[in-house]
Every structure is written in C-alpha cells, then in structure tokens.
Simulated scan of single mutants.
Amino acid sequence: MLDLLDNLVPATLDIYAILFRSGQFNQYFDTVFRLWTFALRWKRKNYNKAPLAFISDYLYWQENNHPLANIISKSLVNFNDYFVENFHSRLQANININYTSDNIIEQSYLLDMHNNQLFNAFRTEKTYPYKPNQLDYLTKKSSLFLLEHFQKIFQNFGKSRIITSKNKKDDIKCYIATLNETLEIKCLPTGYHTAHLPSLDTCDYCKISIKSSTSKVYICGHSYHDNCYNLMESGCKHCLEYYKKGIFQQVKAFKNGLKKIKDEDIILNNENTDDINDDDELDDENNNEMEENNIDNRLQIAINNINQWIVIS
C-alpha cells in the first residue's frame, strides 16, 4: 500500500499534469526513470525500453554539451505531440479504408487549410463537472476508504505470505490476506523482484535481527539497520543490482531490435542494387564495430554514474 500510495500513484499522476506542464525538468527526468522501474517490474514490452532511450539521449546531449540538452530542460512543455495527436484523430475521422496514400495526403492538406474547423472540433466548452460540496464529499469518502482499508491491513498483519513454486524458483506469487487473493509478483514492491527477497525480521545487509536496534523497512521492501544502510552509501544494493541488470537486458533487446530492422533494410536494398564492393563491406563492419563499442562504453559510464540520480528509497 505504501509503494502504491507514496510511489506509483503520485508518479503516474504527476508526470504530465504537474511536472511536464509546469516545466520541472529535473523532477520530470527522475520520474521518467521511476516509471521505467515500474515497467521493468511489470515486464511491459516497449515501455521498459522507451524511457531508457530518452534518458540515454539526454545524458548523451548533456555530456557533449549539445544545445538540445539546454533547450529541452528549459522548454520542456513545448516538447509535446498534442496537436499532432489531435490532427491525426481529425484525419482518421475524415478518411476510410478505401483511401489511397494520395487521398490521405490530399485530405490532410484540406484539413490543414481549415484551421478554425480543426480548433473548434477539439475545443472544450464543457463546464467543470464537480461542485465544491461534491468534492468535499468525495474527499471524505476517499479518506474513509483508506482508513477502513488500513484497519483491515492491521487486523491481517502477519497473515500475508510469499508463495514460491517447488518446480520453478522464479515462479513467485503472493497471498494478500486483506484482499483474500493470490496475486502475481508484479503487484509487490521492487525488493520482491530481486535475487535477494526481503527478510521480514532480519537486516538484508548483515542478517542480524532488526528488532534489537534502530532500523527501517524501506519502500522497496528490504529492511536495514541505519548503520548498514549508510554503509551502502544510502542505497539498497539488492535493488540497485536489479535495476542495473534490467538496464543491460533492455538496452541489449533494444539494440537487437534496431539491428534486426537494419538487417531487413539491407536485404531489401540488396535486392535492388548491385553487389557491394568487399572493401566497402569491410569498412562498414569496422564502423559498426566502433559504433557498438562506443555505445557499450557510454552505457557503462551511465551505469557507473547511476547512483547519482537514482533514488532507491
């Protein structure tokens, strides 16, 4: 519940409505990484790669003093596809499956000539649906729900448990007593996705009981004595390793996807061109190898600096 209310919900609600629209780039950048960690846990295809591409681009621009790094950080709100999406929706509403590419282009020009019509089609004239007394009611109702739910959690304290498969070590589920349901591991905080599952009564660093001294259970699920946490430079080493491994895996998958597209393009081009000179082929291979090494080096540098901008807890 803490992970849901203090981490997941605020990040997903604030990323656009507050951080993007108000131009708070540093917080926006950190939240993009945080959303990537959710996508990694949930194994969401593309969503676990696209944020890394954005982060990699910005860090590269920043490292090389590229003007885009300064522009995007100071003018974040201008980098949106709001008008593109609206135009696409309007275009889709004015074509059918029988349209050729030329017909679609002509229709696009026609719509672009009538900007007022496009504006009016998406202008919102509806009034705000809630009155102050309704908002007050909804606030109280939400508060009551949370109070009752946390009371149920307290009453079921110690009854929830992790269920591991005897045949498959990676097949982990969790029984949530308050909901009386068995859920997938993706519903649990990051610590339960790592190679070291959280211990409920011992420190996940020194393995000594956490009841005898000052300690905390962090939002990732791992528990540490304050001194042990400080020894790890104020970061959960188990979750950090999980993120590092996730970055390597997703970047590798992304590179393989790009290579597959490139190979398909080469095959198509070779069907319409003469044989390529052997010397040119060798030069291309050397250039590709240098480019891959450069990417690998940049990736390693970025991961070595990851502690500077990842906030585990």
Rank of each mutant, 00 (worst) to 15 (best):
D14R: 11
D14F: 05
D14A: 15
I15T: 07
Y16A: 13
I18C: 03
F20S: 07
F20A: 11
R21H: 09
G23K: 09
G23E: 09
Q24I: 03
Q24P: 00
Q27I: 02
Q27V: 03
Y28E: 01
F29A: 04
T31P: 00
T31C: 15
V32F: 02
F33K: 07
L35M: 08
W36Q: 01
F38P: 00
F38T: 01
R41E: 07
W42G: 00
W42M: 08
K43C: 05
K45R: 13
Y47S: 05
Y47I: 02
N48D: 13
K49E: 08
A50G: 00
A50S: 05
A50Q: 04
A50V: 10
P51Q: 06
P51T: 06
L52W: 01
L52R: 01
A53I: 13
A53M: 10
F54H: 06
I55A: 03
S56M: 04
S56P: 00
D57P: 00
D57Q: 11
Y58E: 04
Y58R: 08
L59E: 12
Y60L: 13
W61N: 05
E63H: 10
N64T: 15
N65Q: 14
H66D: 15
P67D: 05
A69I: 07
N70I: 11
I71E: 15
I72L: 08
I72T: 04
S75D: 12
N80L: 10
N80Q: 14
D81H: 12
D81G: 11
V84Q: 12
E85L: 11
E85V: 03
E85C: 13
E85P: 02
N86L: 15
F87E: 02
S89M: 10
L91W: 04
L91Q: 07
A93T: 06
I95N: 06
N96W: 10
N96A: 11
Y99I: 01
Y99N: 10
N103T: 02
I104N: 04
I105E: 11
E106P: 00
Q107E: 15
Y109G: 05
L111H: 10
L111Y: 03
D112Y: 15
H114P: 00
N115T: 07
N116S: 12
N116E: 15
N116Y: 12
Q117N: 12
Q117R: 06
L118R: 05
L118S: 08
A121L: 07
E125L: 13
E125W: 07
Y128P: 01
Y128V: 07
P129W: 06
Y130M: 10
